[in-house]
Design a protein around this nucleic acid. Structure first.
Length: 959
RNA sequence: GCCGGGAUGGUGGAAUCGGUAGACACGCAAGACUUAAAAUCUUGUGGGGGCAACCCCGUGCGGGUUCAAGUCCCGCUCCUGGUACCA
């Protein structure tokens, strides 16, 4: 009757049953897997990071009883974007190595700091008016927190910041020492300028063999004494290692500053990509060319990646050749040229001068005056970018004059050509069209003579290079290239018209920057000549300015500072307005880390004696010709002057590859707010637009989030495929502007720092470039959970037994130890992670929970996943951190197996694989193979024709 | 143009001295447990053929050396990093 009521009863009954079931489930769930005993990475990572920080466990102290190990990462520039997953890659690798070295008993120094002077903070200051120091400090805080979340074993007490006055005080101090030094070629090292002054007073500069400017005048002792102070200072500037001179520089109008050669790429600034022009300016430079040879030959001793060494060699660009003089016909002028191929001297059919060469105006004849002037004007107006991008256009002008080739007294025309560079060699070349491609093209274009002097087929367009027998060359005929060169140089020297010469491509490094956010140069000007401020006035603090821009008349931002003058006691003098370049602070930071709080010296001598130089340096190869070269230069200088005991800063280096981002794109129909899905975009006229990867899952766009992303997209419409919007994708550099940045904090939040560390290592070889891709991250996360379970029983309680391990378990463990050690020594971290996975899988299969196995296992995994291993280590009752444990010794005995074999017969051959003890000789392996039962049976009493033995691997027997 | 580095399954990548190519992981497929999902576990997974044991092919392309080649040699193709009127 009451159907409704009945149904309600049944319904309630069913509901009750379901509720009971539900609670049973939950009760069981909670009982079987107590929450606390699961791998709770959040809690234990927090716990161990706090412990490492408060115990100062990674604090390094000088300890002569122990061997030191200094591992260093290239310190980051703290940008506003924060750390992305690519940054820590190298840090994780070095962290693993240092944790391993600690386990081996080394005294490890592993510091971190910030290269905190730089352009982005200044650009931001220009836009917002906020002082760069404030932005920089905020960024550093964020970086430090992010780094700490990853659980690095850095000694944070050693932190340095290049923009901190207590640090840049010493950058300025080193600058002063460079200013006060010159390079003595006889002793082949830097010496104090005071020594040079003494020599000038005694003998003038006749006997001085020092690196100096080309136009240095010669003078006697009396001359020197009669010079006024100003003149003396000007002369000394020709010798100082840090010096002021009028130079052609890379001027970047958009940035309002000068850039060094390595900061310019293809005519554009490396940072910002603004055009760069050549301009003559009074600039500070560093005489790095004095060290060219030592920088070159020092490379041989370094354990660096070969490509980086090669890049430095090319950058230094040492070429061996000859310098010689051509007399101009009916004229007093002489033209000096540099050539690497003096053997082709008889093939010279014209000379070419750079348009900037001062001789041009003297040599040009009346008839040619107009043509040449026009040409030079044209060449000047062509910007460097045009000149570089347009290599194929051949241009030049004849001066009307002739020079005489001293080898055969022939007259050759003198041309002006912009393919000759003013800045290299002498700014003039002897052209041999038959054997140089550029000369050939030029001669063809202007119909000049082409004279072959090396045997071979010229019609094929073959030029010099490999050499060959000399012809058409008088006394050089029949000789090979090297002999001819030697004979040519001998001829030059005998007739005093030239000599053998070494020419370098590398130029002195421009040191001034017309910027605010850098170290002030500790120099004031009196009578227009620079003097150092007194050492006791260091640091020379950056002054406050109202704006961070250059002034209207083009003086640098420091020109805005009030009272930017120096009081000497005799008067008040203006201070230098430029600041130092970015590379100044980073060229010596590796020494400061040893003794960062020292206020009396840049580093204490005894402390530096102990730590020496960096044993392992990890960073990107993009610094090959910048930071890595300047650091070597400064170290050699500091060594010469006796302040440090090493003349190379980085013994061994590894270049980690960049982790690239994966960008997503949407396609907007031009002029509308309509977006077309990836596979349909070809039917429309679209432009691609980067879209934040956070709005995209498996390349499918979340339309609602996309509309909310930016105001202008709120009314966006879409053309979908199968009801979805599919985005395009591309691998690019990770950057904020491409919306493809993956933040390590997000990964840590989801999986923990140990998983992030393992995964970055597992991704592939350290050196390789690879896109970030989280597809495989579950694998390493699962591995950690399995590892955790190995130390716990089914109920989730911690449980390891004290029973003695069996041979099988020991074998598994020792295989992992061996592999871990080999991989760490070879920096192949990725295969190491694999071997841990195998080990844990096998131990799980063996149901191994023995302390004697699990304790060493925690130690060998700890460099990679330190948090979880520390936790397991302490759960096993150890009261000291794993840092104090020692790396377990691999025992070969557990790997030796009884010989077993499985033959495969192929075409009358038998192949036997035998696992044998590692110490057997070839003969022993051979005889064991022949004694083998299976082999005996197969041979049926025949004697094998051939037995090929590959130790420990495979035995091939041919009948 | 010149100087480096590289090319291996659907994917990331292993393979140390020339010695069973594809370890390990992802993904995928099937199964177990579960009301279900998640998690976990088991099995399979280079291609082709066969019910099966097993056979054939296979490391960018073309040759070569070797009992044996991803690996060494010669000649290419493509990708990638650096560098460029440097005499």
């Amino acid at each position: 009757m009451n159907r409704h009521g009945l149904r309600a009863d049944i319904f309630e009954f069913v509901l009750l049953i379901r509720l009971i079931l539900y609670f049973c489930n939950h009760y069981q769930y909670n009982r079987n897997i107590p929450q606390m005993a699961e791998y709770n990475f959040r809690e234990l990572e927090k716990k161990w990071q706090a412990y490492w920080e408060s115990s100062r466990i990674f604090n390094a102290k000088v300890d002569p009883a122990r061997t030191k190990f200094y591992a260093l990462d290239m310190f980051p520039y703290p940008s506003g974007a924060g750390l992305h997953v690519g940054h820590p890659l190298g840090y994780i690798a070095s962290d693993i190595i240092t944790r391993y070295k600690r386990l081996q008993g080394y005294n490890v120094l592993h510091p971190m700091g910030y290269d905190s002077f730089g352009l982005p903070a200044e650009q931001y200051a220009i836009q917002t008016g906020q002082h760069p120091a404030i932005t920089t400090e905020e960024n550093i805080k964020r970086y430090t927190q992010q780094l700490k979340n990853i659980g690095f074993a850095f000694d944070w007490d050693k932190e340095v910041q290049t923009s901190d006055p207590s640090y840049y005080k010493w950058t300025q101090w080193i600058f002063m020492q460079l200013f006060d030094s010159y390079y003595d070629k006889k002793e082949n090292k830097a010496r104090p300028v005071d020594d040079l002054i003494l020599e000038f007073q005694a003998n003038g500069n006749q006997d001085v063999d020092a690196v100096c400017d080309e136009d240095t005048p010669s003078f006697s002792s009396d001359d020197w004494k009669s010079f006024p102070a100003k003149r003396q200072q000007e002369i000394l500037l020709h010798y100082r290692l840090a010096f002021l001179s009028e130079t052609t520089v890379n001027w970047c109008p958009a940035l309002g500053t000068v850039l060094s050669n390595d900061e310019v790429k293809d005519g554009f600034s490396e940072r910002g990509g603004h055009p760069v022009v050549r301009k003559k300016m009074m600039q500070w430079s560093m005489r790095i060319t004095a060290y060219a040879d030592r920088l070159l030959y020092g490379l041989d001793e370094l354990e660096w990646p070969e490509p980086v060494k090669e890049m430095q060699r090319n950058w230094i660009g040492r070429s061996l050749g000859a310098e010689m003089v051509f007399q101009v016909k009916d004229h007093a002028a002489k033209i000096k040229v540099f050539t690497t191929r003096i053997d082709t001297i008889f093939g010279v059919t014209y000379l070419a001068l750079a348009p900037e060469n001062e001789l041009v105006s003297q040599l040009v004849t009346k008839e040619q005056e107009k043509t040449v002037e026009e040409y030079i004007q044209n060449a000047k107006n062509r910007s460097d970018i045009e000149r570089m991008s347009d290599v194929k256009t051949i241009s030049g002008a004849f001066t009307g004059s002739y020079a005489i080739n001293p080898f055969n007294n022939e007259e050759v025309p003198i041309w002006v050509a912009d393919y000759v560079l003013a800045g290299y060699g002498t700014g003039a070349v002897m052209a041999v069209p038959a054997h140089d491609e550029r000369d050939y093209n030029f001669a063809r274009h202007f119909g000049l003579e082409i004279r072959q002097v090396i045997e071979g087929d010229l019609t094929a367009g073959a030029f010099a290079g490999k050499g060959g027998t000399i012809m058409n060359s008088d006394f050089l005929n029949g000789l090979e290239m090297q002999e001819a060169m030697d004979k040519g140089i001998a001829f030059l020297e005998k007739n005093k018209i030239g000599k053998g010469k070494i020419q370098y491509r590398m130029r002195d490094a421009i040191f001034s920057r017309q910027r605010y956010w850098g170290e002030p140069i500790p120099v004031y000007f009196k009578d227009g000549v620079p003097y150092l401020i007194s050492e006791k006035d260091l640091p020379l603090l950056l002054p406050e300015v109202d704006k961070y821009l250059p002034t209207e008349d083009g003086t640098p931002p420091l020109g805005r500072a009030k009272n930017w003058t120096y009081e000497t006691g005799e008067g008040e003098y203006p201070l230098e307005l430029s600041t130092m370049p970015g590379w100044a602070g980073s060229s010596w930071y590796f020494f400061r880390y040893m003794d960062p709080l020292n206020n009396a010296e840049f580093v204490n001598k005894k402390i530096q004696d102990y730590w020496g130089s960096v044993d392992l340096y990890i960073g990107g190869s993009e610094h090959a010709t910048g930071h890595l070269l300047y650091s070597r230069f400064w170290t050699k200088f500091l060594y010469d002057r006796g302040w440090v005991n090493v003349d190379e800063p980085f013994k061994k280096m590894i270049n980690q590859g960049m982790i690239q981002g994966r960008s997503n794109f949407v396609y907007r129909v031009k002029g509308t707010n309509e977006f077309v899905s990836y596979n349909l975009k070809d039917d429309y006229d679209t432009t691609a637009m980067h879209v934040d990867i956070k709005l995209v899952y498996n390349d499918q766009l979340d339309l609602d989030k996309f509309r909310k992303w930016r105001k202008d997209l709120s009314d966006a419409t879409f053309v979908l495929e199968n009801g979805k919007y599919i985005c395009g994708a591309e691998v690019e550099k990770m950057s904020k502007s491409k919306y493809n940045v993956v933040n390590p904090d997000d990964v840590i939040e989801r999986y923990g720092a140990d998983t992030l560390r393992l995964y970055e290592m597992f991704l592939g070889p350290l050196e390789q470039f690879k896109p970030w891709n989280t597809n495989g991250i579950d694998g390493v996360f699962k591995f950690l959970k399995k590892l955790w379970r190995l130390y716990h029983d089914q109920e989730g309680n911690f449980s390891v037994s004290l029973n003695a391990p069996g041979k099988e378990e020991l074998k598994v463990l020792h295989r992992a130890i061996k592999k871990a050690q080999e991989d760490l020594d070879n920096f192949s971290f990725n295969t190491s992670v694999s071997s841990f996975m195998i080990c844990v899988n096998e131990l799980t299969a063996l149901k191994c929970n023995k302390k004697d196995i699990l304790e060493p296992l925690a130690i060998i995994i700890s460099p990679y996943a330190p948090h979880i291993c520390e936790e397991l280590w302490s759960l096993m009752g150890n009261d000291r951190s794993i840092v104090f444990a020692s790396f377990p010794q691999f025992k070969e005995e557990f790997l030796v197996e009884e010989a077993h074999e499985y033959p495969i017969s192929v075409n009358g051959k038998i192949r036997v694989k035998m696992s044998l003890p590692l110490n057997l000789s070839r003969e022993e392996i051979e005889s064991r193979a022949l004694e083998n039962e299976v082999v005996q049976k197969w041979l049926e009493g025949n004697t094998p024709k051939k037995v090929i033995v590959v130790p420990q691997k495979i035995v091939n027997i041919v009948v």
